[in-house]
Design a protein around this nucleic acid. Structure first.
Lengths: 212, 212
DNA sequence: ACCTGAACACCGTTCAAGT
DNA sequence: ACCTGAACACCGTTCAAGT
């Protein structure tokens, strides 16, 4: 493992200052790059430190341990995800069904654009309080959109709990299939992500929408 | 990491024979147990060897390297998954829509019952030829069920490619949510898996079924 | 306040030697 | 044919010492 880093690739770039400046951020970015290269368990604190040009012990001034570094990556990703879902729903207008759809599409778009972030965010061993709270709050938002749609009569009159979970699951499944390489294994390239996502969401959207 | 194994837990169980007997299988089971305890990157060949009561080098007579051990776990899981989906579709009768539904429910049931298998099977860094082929073949089976349903007029007349991907994504999403702890984070326990799954599948099934 | 560098106990992997 | 045990180069983490 890590045979690739035989002092050729990320050789210690010298810095002129004794202090790094923003080692915390550099470690987060380094970890993300290593996830992209080798997956979550290919992340090495030492290797990220090497690429940042610091000694092996330096990162531990910023993170208590490796899992805290990963948690920082996850939390960074969650902030970006929430921001882009927020923007998408705002731009989507007033209809709750439209807003729900926009949220879902934004979710998948994020996963395709930031698969390493996405993967780290969803490693169960790492997801602690803050992350779970954020996820719960966006599910709460989904649920209120579902209920509003039902009140307005645009969404079918089923258990809103189930409708919310179902919507989440569909969108999570599409995102995960891109991230886990199941789409590309079947010839669906990332460039078709947007089109495939909207087609899928609209197809099953028929199941959610009130007939007539 | 692995502070828990301070010679207390899995202390070397002596065997009476010099040869283990079935080290290969023991390593697969040990790896699965470690995935359950610490996630996929908590798997250690040495620790699994220790628990099997063999020396650190022994496993390498059976697996070229760690990733080949993980691949064996994945392939073991895939066989079980295919078997139980096969059985479920057979028991489901003749209607393609019913068979499709049964396949999906069996998929989720497998994920909930064997989350460690499921996780290893879907680590993109590990999924090689045989696994991907198996996945592709079961998607092909799904697609032919969709097309048959459309011919018989029970399924809505949309792009069968999309309908297949959509069905896969929904079911993959539900499975993943259980495995990744997203359901339990929202108070949905594994014991409700069966009921929640069928409710979700039936809700979106409305989107797939032909109106009238 | 932040970083270095040596130290420690791990891990993956190899290989001569044992059974 | 399969396993042992020592070896090697890694990794996470700690900590005195440096800037």
């Amino acid at each position: 493992m890590f045979m690739a880093s035989k002092r050729t690739t990320g050789a210690k770039r010298k810095r002129k200052t004794y202090h790094h400046g923003d080692l915390r951020q550099a470690m987060i970015e380094g970890a993300l790059k290593l996830v992209a290269e080798h997956g979550p368990d290919g992340v090495s604190v030492r290797e990220a430190a090497r690429r940042a040009g610091v000694s092996p012990g330096a990162p531990f001034r910023h993170f208590a341990d490796k899992s805290e570094l990963m948690a920082a990556v996850a939390s960074d990703g969650m902030q970006r995800l929430l921001a882009s879902m927020m923007q998408a729903t705002t731009e989507a207008g007033d209809d709750p069904a439209d807003r729900l759809r926009a949220m879902g599409v934004a979710f998948v778009r994020f996963a395709v654009a930031h698969p390493s972030h996405f993967r780290v965010m969803h490693v169960p061993e790492l997801s602690m309080g803050a992350l779970r709270d954020a996820a719960r709050s966006s599910r709460a938002q989904m649920k209120s959109l579902v209920e509003e749609g039902q009140r307005q009569g645009t969404l079918v009159d089923c258990d809103p709990e189930i409708a919310t979970l179902a919507s989440y699951a569909l969108v999570y499944g599409v995102a995960r299939m891109f991230v886990d390489g199941l789409f590309s294994a079947q010839g669906v390239r990332d460039s078709r992500a947007e089109a495939v996502t909207t087609a899928i969401v609209d197809l099953f959207g028929r199941g959610l929408r009130k007939p007539g």
